[in-house]
Amino acid sequence: MSESVQPGRPQTEVETGSRMQRLFDLRYVIGALMGVYGIVLVIRGLLDGPEQLARAAGISINLWTGIGLLVVAAIFLVWGVTRPLGIDVEENID
């Protein structure tokens, strides 16, 4: 891993996250997994019949959980897109 020095730029130490973070942004992983779970549950929920409803005390629990998961997924994906890694670096004040 060579940390290349860019000439002409101030050589201050700006931490842009660990190698781990630079490899992949966890927000996308959370967003993707929750999103897939959400889509699957919404489809399953739309197909649910009286048997599934009766089991879950009358709540269409697959549908509602699916919608909840899609909301969580959307929050993380939007956050990841609007605040990409590397911008959030100016809080190093101690």
């Binding site: 966890l26 929750m34 879950a56 709540i59 509602w64 998961l69």
Partner: peptide, 23 residues
Amino acid sequence: YGEVLQFFVILAGLIPLAIVAVR
């Protein structure tokens, strides 16, 4: 990273369970 993911999956299972249980 695994723990953060686990946090969301655990709640995604437990929250619906608690809601259905109360109902």
